[in-house]
Every structure is written in structure tokens, then in C-alpha cells.
Nucleic acid binder design. Structure first.
Length: 584
RNA sequence: GGGGACGUGGUGUAGUCUGGUUUAAACACACUGCCCUGUCAAGGCAGAGACCGCGGGUUCAAAUCCCGUCGUCCCCGCCA
């Protein structure tokens, strides 16, 4: 029997027609005299009816069990009055079976193929093929396909060319840890899997392709998280003869189209923009979640000479004091506030100071150190209301910013201040070009070393600290969707950057000499951006983890329970590669 | 490298804090059999199924307390 339709796509226009469908037995309701089966395929469910008059099919129906694979021929008809199911798109019709064929059977399942139960991730990944059968999952992956398709249709219409770049490439120890692939033909040498196609796409610009994109896998051998996998997918694009606004405009219009055509949601463009400095000050993060307010306030000037020595001495040593006003937080108990303190300590703070705005005045263990005017300033700066809780941190800037940023997010979630149906896009711009790495005593780029500085000043180790980058990150609901920049297209500027980054024993100039060369041969001004495809899909699907939109993800310990990877390999394989294992 | 949560029939959980007749473990779903001609997360009756992740210790007695170990998840570090 040749299939004529998907189960989930049959509609009333097929009434009185004979059709053939194939699928899995989703559920079986045996009434003794009549048997109903919900047959499932990727498009959805259709109720099929076995009637006792047809003895042959009825006998087979009695044998059907969950997840049996069958093909069914029958007549589509309108369901009898009062038996419609409004929960199904096919709920007004059913298929009366005239012929049925069991294509495969299925033993007892390790878990039910339904949306109604949370199964442990371990089991889900071991039986990923069953897990992926669940309707909610099929939906996620159909959506993921649509997103990719809309991206391609849009970028194609904007004259972008899809060009592939290699997976076997060169290891560059900056940034994330590389996955290494031993070379059989070059003993002792290794390829690396790309952390991103960054340099390839820049070279494609030098080659004159003008606009490039790729939906491409990237690899980073770092620890995994809910939003991080060893291999992940990026929408990677690059454009020639552009400035920041041109790239940002393309991305905004692309996302507008994707959200409209996939979710039927109108997002507002252009996205709001915020400077890096502002984001760090107000939200304590370079990827602020602006779905709720609760902004951080700085008191480093106000408390410079205050009587509370913890504050004034930190400030005199170059540190800062900032605080957060938690609406209706005064009802938190002492131990709950201690919990916040421990949370802050986890992020590197030494302690946390709090004040409750009560009817009787401000309640706090340190209230005696503060003058009335100072309390007034605190209250007015926050716009604090009765019943609010204010917390302060005093430390070096990095610690305070990070802690309060994390605490703000935690409170936003716990107090349910976040509107889950909102999509808040945001550009973070004006990043510093570099930051000083105290431990290693050297300059480090915030983005990557190919990012163009703002302005045309000649850069050196003295003035680089104040330079801004032509870089931009696109943020959605506090998650970094992607980042990009205008790249350096002049060899002399790129050389300056490498000089600043280089330590005495390693020269970036040598490692990237091919790039410096390429830039001299007529490199056009160019820039681009890379978007985390998995993250976009997870956000659009309302999932908390990108694993829910990746068909075969790894566990947090970086293994695959289905294939049981990674594994050791044979001596023969190792010998061919001239690799010896030395497990300590 | 570090912090935390969890691990009980096939699945999801209760029981763990305060060790012991709420019979060596309860409930729901799934499973098996029977009944049932309009259900749709069908219903009814009956049944099978776990020595409580693994190892060790404390104790008269351990799912329960302690130590170790493995696994899953969340977070810090890390992710230019």
C-alpha cells in the first residue's frame, strides 16, 4: 500500500475519500466492540476506527500495541455527532479502516512516547530515537528547519552567497580549547576543528565574494552548560564595504522575517542599543535581560567619605559601591538574605550589606553609620518604596558588577518579574577593544583580535586601554544570540594589534602571517556577525536548554549515551596516526 | 578544578530529616489477561513487576545515618 497522506495533515476535504496512511500506534482504546487507534506521524495524530464487521482487520487491531508501525487504508469520514475532539487538528474526522498491515512490532517501551511526563535526561538520550518521537520534539525540529529555511531565503534575497569552509583547519591556541585531529600524513601534526569560520570568511571577502553566509557547525572543547555544547551551529555571515549599521540592519530584518514567518510574532526593529559601559553599570552584564527593570545604582561618589568604613575604604582603594533595590524585598527573612549573601560570595564578593525600607524607618544592622541625608539619597536614587529591600556591595569594580548582575537576574526570576512571552532584542555596542588580564599580565581582546578599533588612532600598549571596538552583540532576553564586528582590513593596523597582544615567547604575527599577507593584497573593508542558531531555536521554542533543539546532544560530561561515545580506539588506528596514549 | 541538587518496579514520584509492624516498600501511568460498540491522557476487574545506582562502614536493625564511587542535571571557573 502506497502512502497517500500524512496522518496529521488529513482534513475535512478528504471526507469520503479512500486514503493510505503510515505511522506509529500512539494509543489504543479497545472498547471490545470497536477499537480506536491514534496513529501518529511527524505531522500529528489521526484517529482510526476498527469495526467488528470487518473481521480480518479487527483481528489485527486486537494485536496492535504502542509504537507498532502500521500502514492503513480506509475511508475518511466525519465523526459522529458528540464525538469530536477539539484538541486535535484532525479531531472532526476519522479513518474507517478497510485494510491494515503491521510493518513492524515494538516491545515494552523504556518510557512512554508522550508529552505528559518528564523523563530523566540520561534515559532520554540513551533512547533518543524514542525521545525524538514525542510530538513536542517533532515540533521543535520542524520549527528549527523552518528557521533555517527562512534565514536562507532571506539572505539569498539579499544577495548573500552560501559558501562552505573547512572543518579541518589550523589550531590557534587563543580563545577556546581546540578539538584536535591527528594528521596521518604529517606525523606529529594536528588539524583543529574550527571554533568558528572567522578567518575563512574574512578571506572570502578579500577574494571578492562580497556577501557570504553559512549555517555551520563550530567546535569548542570547553565545559558544557544548558546553553553550551561541544559542537553547535552558527548562522555565520560577512559583508564587504559595510559599517556597523549595515550589518545590524541586515540582522534585524532577518530576525524580523524569521519571527514573523515561523512564530507569527511581529518584533520591533530597529532594536534598542545600549553601550557596553551602560549595560555593565545599569544591569551588571554585557548581555542584560531588559524584560524587567531593577537597575543597579552607583554610590561610589556619595559614599566616598561616609562613616561606614567598609564603603569609604573600598572606594579610597579604587573600588566601587553599588546597590540593587529589590521591590517588596523587605519581607525576606534574615536567612533568605543570608542566602543572597552566600550567592554573592560565590561570585567573589566578600559580603553584602542590606537595608529594609519599613514603616518605622530604615532597618539595617549598619543604619547607625548613615546620616539622614545619606539615607534620603539612597531612597531617592532607587525610587525605593515602603517594603523594598536594598542591598549594597563594595569591592573592586569587576566583582561588584558581576555579583549584582547575577543577583539582579536571580531576583528577577524568583520574584517572577519576567514576562515569559516577551522577546526583548537589544544591541550592546561600544565594547572596549581590549582588557587587561591581571593573572597573565597582558592585554586581551574582548571579541577577537581581528576586530577593528573605533577611530583611526595608532594603537600601542599605552593607549589601547581606552580604545573602543567596532563590535556589537545582539542580545535576546538576557541571552547572547550573537556577536560581530567590523574587521580590520589594513595589514598595518592588524600588525599593531598583534604586537599589543603578543607576549615575549609567542608571536601572533607569525601564527597569522597568512592573514597579514592576505590583507596587503587589496582587502576591502568588511564586517559581519555570527548568531547562535541553537540558542535562537531554543528561545523560539520556549526551551531552557539548547539540548531540546539539538537532535543528538552530548551530556554535561561530554558523552553520547546513545552511541556510547567517546570510546578508546584500536592500537592499529593509533599506530597509523603515530599517536601514543599515556593515561596517567 | 570547585559548589549544589538528584539517583526507590518499565516510567514518574512518596517514603530518607526523626533507622525498626503504615507486614522487605506506597501511589499514578505504562505493561499482561479478562469485560466492554464511540472513546480520545477511555473505563471496569484481575495480575505481574523493585531487596531502594554501586561498594564499604556504623548498628541488634539501614532505602533511611556516615565514607567512598559512578551517573544525570544546575551553577562558578572556563567559553578570545
Amino acid at each position: 500500500m502506497k502512502r497517500s497522506s500524512y496522518c496529521g495533515n488529513v482534513r475535512e476535504d478528504s471526507i469520503d475519500k479512500d486514503i493510505v496512511i503510515c505511522g506509529w500506534v500512539h494509543s489504543r482504546r479497545d472498547h471490545g466492540g470497536v477499537i480506536f487507534i491514534d496513529l501518529r506521524d511527524r505531522e500529528g495524530l489521526l484517529q482510526i476506527v476498527f469495526q467488528p464487521e470487518n473481521k480480518e482487520t479487527f483481528k489485527i487491531a486486537e494485536r496492535l500495541r504502542s509504537e507498532y508501525v502500521v500502514s492503513v487504508k480506509g475511508l475518511v469520514r466525519k465523526r459522529p455527532k458528540g464525538t469530536l475532539n477539539p484538541n486535535l487538528l484532525t479531531g472532526s474526522i476519522e479513518l474507517v479502516v478497510s485494510k491494515v498491515e503491521i510493518l513492524n512490532t515494538c516491545p515494552g517501551l523504556p518510557f512512554e512516547v508522550s508529552n505528559y511526563r518528564e523523563i530523566s535526561e540520561e534515559l532520554r538520550l540513551k533512547y533518543r530515537y524514542l525521545d525524538l518521537r514525542r510530538p513536542s520534539f517533532q515540533k521543535n525540529f520542524i520549527m528549527r528547519h523552518k528557521v533555517a529555511n527562512e534565514v536562507r531565503v532571506f539572505l539569498n534575497s539579499e544577495s548573500f552567497l552560501e559558501i562552505e569552509t573547512p572543518f579541518l583547519t589550523k589550531s590557534t591556541p587563543e580563545g577556546a580549547r581546540d578539538f584536535l585531529v591527528p594528521s596521518r600524513l604529517h606525523h606529529g601534526s594536528f588539524f583543529a576543528l574550527p571554533q568558528s569560520p572567522q578567518l575563512f570568511k574574512q578571506i572570502l571577502m578579500i577574494s571578492g565574494f562580497d556577501k557570504y553566509y553559512q549555517i555551520v557547525k563550530c567546535f569548542r572543547d570547553e565545559d558544557l552548560r544548558a546553553d553550551r555544547q561541544l559542537e553547535f551551529t552558527q548562522i555565520d555571515l560577512e559583508m564587504s564595504f559595510v559599517e556597523e549599521n549595515d550589518v545590524m540592519d541586515v540582522i534585524e530584518r532577518m530576525l524580523l522575517r524569521v519571527f514573523k514567518n515561523v512564530l507569527n510574532i511581529e518584533i520591533k526593529i530597529p532594536f534598542e542599543r545600549i553601550s557596553y559601559a551602560d549595560a555593565m553599570l545599569r544591569y551588571g552584564s554585557d548581555k542584560p535581560d531588559t524584560r524587567f527593570e531593577m537597575e543597579i545604582k552607583d554610590f561610589s561618589i556619595e559614599f566616598k567619605e561616609c562613616d561606614f568604613k567598609v564603603f569609604s575604604s573600598v572606594i579610597s582603594k579604587g573600588g566601587i559601591v553599588r546597590g540593587l533595590c529589590i521591590p517588596e524585598g523587605a519581607s525576606f527573612s534574615r536567612s533568605e538574605i543570608d542566602g543572597f549573601k552566600n550567592f554573592a560570595i560565590e561570585y567573589g564578593a566578600k559580603g553584602l550589606v542590606w537595608m529594609k525600607i519599613m514603616e518605622s524607618g530604615v532597618e539595617s544592622g549598619i543604619i547607625k553609620y548613615f546620616k539622614d541625608e545619606e539615607i534620603k539619597v539612597i531612597k531617592s536614587k532607587f525610587g525605593a518604596k515602603l517594603g523594598d529591600l536594598i542591598v549594597f556591595l563594595a569591592d573592586e569594580e569587576k566583582v561588584v558588577v558581576q555579583c549584582l548582575g547575577a543577583l539582579r537576574l536571580k531576583m528577577g526570576k524568583e520574584l517572577d518579574l519576567i514576562d515569559k512571552f516577551k522577546f526583548n532584542f537589544l544591541w550592546v555596542v561600544d565594547f572596549p577593544l581590549m582588557e587587561w588580564n591581571k593573572e597573565e599580565e597582558r592585554w586581551q581582546t574582548l571579541h577577537h583580535p581581528f576586530t577593528s578599533p573605533q577611530g583611526v588612532v595608532s594603537l600601542n600598549k599605552k593607549n589601547v586601554g581606552t580604545a573602543k571596538a567596532k563590535a556589537y552583540d545582539v542580545i535576546l532576553n538576557g541571552i547572547e544570540l550573537g556577536g560581530g564586528s567590523i574587521r580590520i582590513h589594513r595589514s598595518d593596523v592588524q600588525k599593531e594589534i598583534f604586537d599589543i597582544l603578543s607576549t615575549s615567547d609567542e608571536s601572533a604575527k607569525e601564527k597569522f602571517s597568512f592573514l597579514l599577507d592576505a590583507l596587503t593584497y587589496g582587502a576591502p573593508p568588511h564586517g559581519g556577525l555570527a548568531l547562535g542558531f541553537d540558542r535562537i531555536c531554543a528561545l523560539m521554542a520556549g526551551e531552557d536548554s539548547i539540548r531540546e533543539v539539538i537532535a543528538f546532544p552530548k551530556t554535561q560530561k561530554a558523552s553520547d549515551p546513545l552511541f556510547n561515545a567517546p570510546t578508546s580506539v584500536s592500537e592499529k588506528q593509533l599506530k597509523e596516526l603515530n599517536v601514543r596514549i599515556d593515561v596517567g
